[in-house]
Design a protein around this nucleic acid. Structure first.
Lengths: 115, 115
DNA sequence: TCTGATGTTGCAATGTTTAGAAACATTTGT
DNA sequence: ACAAATGTTTCTAAACATTGCAACATCAGA
């Protein structure tokens, strides 16, 4: 089962690598409501179409989006919207933790660690 | 609201960057059940302690783990176990999508796209 | 078949991430 | 104060990622 385990780690790593870029996160957010073509996305996030195309194929390789040709356009759609929800959820958890840490710091500064 | 938006994208990107590495994913899995110290983790995943320490401080900066000194050891604990669950969930979604794509390919090959 | 609109790929320059070795820092127990 | 155990930081080289431009590929319509 060790080889399968390694495969799973690779798969997850690919997925997170695909998500680990602000440009790609912006594109994914645009795709939440409807499919967009490459040129729309490129214009929307402000990069060359070639850059947008490369980001999108990375997202596709990770299995996060899918594409379909419509005439001269290529439309990309979100495969698993749950991935974006999950991002929000994790973000909330992390922000809550940061807030907690700050409070602990504040309390320590004011109270002065009673014995 | 645009500045806050940019901040959120940065935050998420940091989180996903922290998750986008097999070594760090392995360490996080170890932390699922109990806190581990740096030397245990380093031995468990097979890297130098300096490497393990760097990975762990990256995870900490992203808000995914927290640390506490216990004598000469430093123990790291998982802050938001939901992040690991989320990884599993996303993995399932993506694997399901890949399976679907394969089936579409197979069907296309056998059936021959009826008009 | 030619032309215009989209997309994708190859390339080179630039920036980022990673690993490991060595030096440094912190804590405990003597 | 010292020595042993554990963590962190610094440095370097190698690997990898990102960008934009130019060249190429694909499709629709005249």
């Amino acid at each position: 089962m060790d080889e399968f385990d390694a495969y799973r780690y690779e798969l997850r790593t690919e997925m997170f690598k695909a998500l680990a870029n602000p440009m790609r996160l912006r594109m994914l957010e645009r795709l939440r409501d409807r499919p967009w073509c490459v040129c729309e996305l490129a214009a929307s996030v402000g990069v060359d179409k070639s850059v947008a195309s490369k980001h999108l194929s990375q997202l596709k390789a990770a299995g996060l989006v899918d594409d379909e040709r419509r005439g001269t356009l290529v439309e990309y759609r979100l495969v698993a919207p749950c991935v974006l929800d999950m991002a929000e959820c994790a973000e909330r958890a992390i922000l809550a933790e940061r807030r907690r840490r700050l409070e602990v710091l504040e309390a320590g500064r004011e109270g002065g660690e009673a014995p």
